[in-house]
Simulated assay, not measured.
Amino acid sequence: MVSLETLRAPLFVPADRPDRFAKAAASGACAVVLDLEDAVAVEAKDAARAALACDFTDLPVLVRVNPAATPWHTADVEAAAALPFAAVMLPKAECPDAVAEVAQRAGRPILPLIESARGLAAAREIAACANVPRLAFGSIDFCADIGCEHLRDTLRSVRLELVIASRLAGIAAPIDGVTTDLSDPEITEDDSRHARSLGMSGKLCIHPRQIAPIRIGFAPTAAERDWAARVLASGDGAVAVDGAMVDEPVRLRARAILANAG
């Protein structure tokens, strides 16, 4: 069973399309996220909630509820509590107390989506909440909230802050937001490598064709594996490998690379 801490490429599926649930589970995704929020039109919210299910797969099934400020939120959380979901994904997470309240009401782990300036300001407190195994980044909504462009350089410090918040709280590294461009799998792979370079360890996906590129992007390259093997074969103390000094912090990095190579 895949744990919430190691989810690499969870796949969103509109919760009002139960005909797609099993297909999503068979796509190679590590988990399925039934989406009650952005993927569902207002007039279909109630039908989507009624269609929720977990019995179509052995993979972890998560549910993304509607935000607390919406009229569907309470019913969504009640529905999440009634089924054996692996976790509840909470959009527009901005307040640690609100996150804790949803966790208590749903009786499930919470994956808070950091999607606003307020959410970012509270990210360290949210990450430290009980029953929060991981943060996720809602990069599109975040850019809309602060009025910036959805560019790597613009969002670099935000991604780093989520990594730092997670590390300080002792939880798994965060999940990056979606890549909206589906035209070329190399775009998704490149975005994944960028997120990995900053310390993130997974990426939300919106189409099955993104799963393989995400897995590739977060996996160590052959050159990285070879380097790590040489570093760990170099012995103890301070030595030179490929003309560069190697000591224990470098070996820690090498061990992490090989641990993620499996």
Rank of each mutant, 00 (worst) to 15 (best):
residue 170 G to C: 05
residue 159 R to T: 13
residue 174 P to R: 05
residue 2 V to P: 15
residue 164 I to P: 09
residue 26 A to I: 08
residue 5 E to T: 15
residue 245 M to K: 09
residue 178 V to P: 02
residue 237 G to C: 09
residue 105 R to A: 12
residue 80 A to Y: 11
residue 18 P to H: 13
residue 148 C to V: 15
residue 161 E to H: 13
residue 218 F to N: 09
residue 169 A to M: 00
residue 147 G to Q: 03
residue 59 L to K: 13
residue 47 A to P: 06
residue 233 A to N: 14
residue 187 I to C: 02
residue 7 L to G: 10
residue 30 C to S: 15
residue 142 F to D: 02
residue 92 K to M: 03
residue 225 R to Q: 15
residue 241 V to R: 03
residue 143 C to Q: 07
residue 56 F to G: 07
residue 186 E to S: 15
residue 145 D to W: 06
residue 104 Q to A: 15
residue 125 E to F: 13
residue 114 I to T: 07
residue 106 A to C: 07
residue 209 R to C: 12
residue 56 F to P: 04
residue 138 G to N: 03
residue 125 E to G: 14
residue 60 P to V: 11
residue 18 P to I: 11
residue 52 L to I: 05
residue 10 P to C: 04
residue 15 A to P: 09
residue 142 F to T: 08
residue 219 A to R: 12
residue 55 D to I: 11
residue 172 A to W: 03
residue 29 A to S: 03
residue 102 V to T: 06
residue 55 D to F: 04
residue 45 K to Y: 00
residue 220 P to R: 05
residue 6 T to K: 15
residue 250 V to Q: 05
residue 36 L to T: 04
residue 241 V to I: 03
residue 183 S to F: 03
residue 15 A to S: 12
residue 161 E to P: 07
residue 52 L to A: 02
residue 169 A to P: 04
residue 124 R to W: 10
residue 206 I to C: 01
residue 18 P to V: 13
residue 1 M to F: 11
residue 141 D to N: 13
residue 43 E to L: 08
residue 228 A to G: 03
residue 140 I to P: 11
residue 32 V to A: 03
residue 79 A to R: 07
residue 216 I to S: 15
residue 179 T to S: 10
residue 232 L to C: 04
residue 50 A to P: 01
residue 177 G to H: 02
residue 196 R to T: 09
residue 48 A to F: 00
residue 24 A to G: 14
residue 172 A to Q: 06
residue 95 C to S: 15
residue 149 E to W: 12
residue 199 G to F: 01
residue 196 R to S: 11
residue 45 K to C: 00
residue 118 R to Q: 13
residue 55 D to H: 06
residue 33 V to W: 02
residue 111 L to W: 10
residue 91 P to F: 00
residue 200 M to R: 12
residue 177 G to K: 05
residue 227 W to C: 04
residue 120 L to H: 06
residue 68 A to V: 13
residue 176 D to E: 14
residue 107 G to N: 06
residue 123 A to I: 07
residue 62 L to E: 01
residue 208 P to C: 04
residue 197 S to I: 09
residue 187 I to R: 01
residue 154 T to Y: 03
residue 231 V to W: 05
residue 233 A to P: 11
residue 6 T to V: 13
residue 97 D to G: 14
residue 168 L to H: 14
residue 80 A to N: 11
residue 27 S to Y: 02
residue 4 L to G: 07
residue 183 S to P: 08
residue 111 L to Q: 04
residue 79 A to F: 01
residue 222 A to T: 14
residue 60 P to E: 09
residue 3 S to Q: 11
residue 239 V to I: 08
residue 178 V to F: 01
residue 61 V to T: 13
residue 61 V to W: 05
residue 58 D to P: 05
residue 135 L to C: 05
residue 193 R to E: 09
residue 218 F to L: 10
residue 140 I to R: 15
residue 73 H to M: 02
residue 238 A to Q: 12
residue 63 V to D: 03
